[in-house]
């Protein structure tokens, strides 16, 4: 739309600024909260400008014991737990979905479509629905309070399998035939042709799945009783009730701020590949 109406563009900017303000305000408050002393955060009105305690709070949160007067694990450990969980979920989901989509699209075996629909139907069952039996299985396998317990039940993914299937279907058949004439076996074809051709989709999915994994709340809450295995998203909630005193907002806000950083980093890092992939057309 090329229009030259100043009033309209001023109005458009006002709407955009309002939108930004609504989205950015909570983040700003988090930042402000993380930069004051604990006492200041309990007085009204809450401050709207940053204080001078940011680095003190950062040190206390990251390397100290976190909250004063509790026995929660230090925040760097929870960050690492979250990181390992999110990465295992994202990478595991992508690896398994790629392989199962590859099998469904490129191999003819009995009940192929049956298997496809079986995978597809599980789309309709979210984690929450099957959470009790899953917990039972994980508990019986002795995987409580471990990275495997945190990630394995979340790895199988119908959505990603379905998405990769659609991606593979857009790869022309001639590509496979050409590779066959070149002498490439199935796994060779998978590595040399299919993976590079889907790499932008893999990148996009990695972003989504990493954030999905990072934001997991219910499952880690159930499966981890040991504070050493606790993830950061769960612990923020715990912190509110942990100590037998008023919440230490400065530490909690700092933790929230730290919890935001890895997903932002992943989005920024992957966005480059993502955009590059979008500009690179034909298959």
């Amino acid at each position: 739309m090329v229009e030259n109406r100043p009033l309209l563009s001023i109005l458009a900017h006002i709407v955009l600024l309002l939108g930004v303000a609504i989205v950015a305000l909570p983040v700003w408050i988090t930042f402000v909260g993380a930069s004051h002393e604990a006492e200041r955060m309990l007085q009204t009105p809450i401050p709207m400008l940053p204080g001078d305690q940011f680095f003190v709070n950062l040190r206390q949160t990251l390397w100290g014991s976190g909250l004063e007067g509790t026995n929660t694990a230090p925040v760097w450990m929870m960050l690492m737990n979250s990181m390992v969980m999110a990465l295992m979920i994202a990478i595991g989901k992508i690896a398994i979905s790629l392989l199962s989509a590859f099998a469904i699209v490129y191999f003819k075996f009995p009940f192929r479509m049956g298997f496809f629909w079986m995978i597809f139907i599980t789309l309709m069952l979210p984690v929450e629905v099957r959470i009790l039996p899953t917990f039972e299985v994980i508990a019986d396998l002795g995987m409580l309070n471990s990275y495997w317990g945190l990630t394995v039940p979340l790895i199988a993914s119908a959505t990603a399998t379905f998405m990769f299937r659609q991606v593979f279907l857009t790869i022309p058949d001639e590509m496979l035939e050409s590779a066959r004439i070149d002498g490439a076996g199935p796994m060779r074809f998978f590595w040399d042709i299919v993976i590079p051709l889907s790499r932008t989709n893999i990148a996009a999915l990695f972003v989504i799945l990493f954030i999905y994994g990072w934001n997991q709340y219910l499952w880690p809450l159930l499966i981890t009783t040991d504070t050493d295995m606790m993830t950061i998203v769960v612990s923020i909630k715990q912190m509110l009730e942990a100590a037998e005193q008023s919440p230490q907002w400065n530490i909690i806000m700092m933790t929230a701020l730290l919890a935001m950083i890895p997903p932002i980093f992943v989005v920024i890092a992957m966005q480059k590949l993502f955009v590059q992939g979008l500009t690179e057309t034909d298959k």
Binding site: M175, E177, S178, D182, A184, P196, K283
Partner: peptide, 19 residues
């Protein structure tokens, strides 16, 4: 298998590997 027949094929849409 096609690869063992000692042939080469040129396709209508060329089927070049884009990457």
């Amino acid at each position: 298998e096609p690869a063992d027949r000692d042939i080469a094929m040129v396709f209508q849409n060329y089927a070049l590997y884009p990457h």
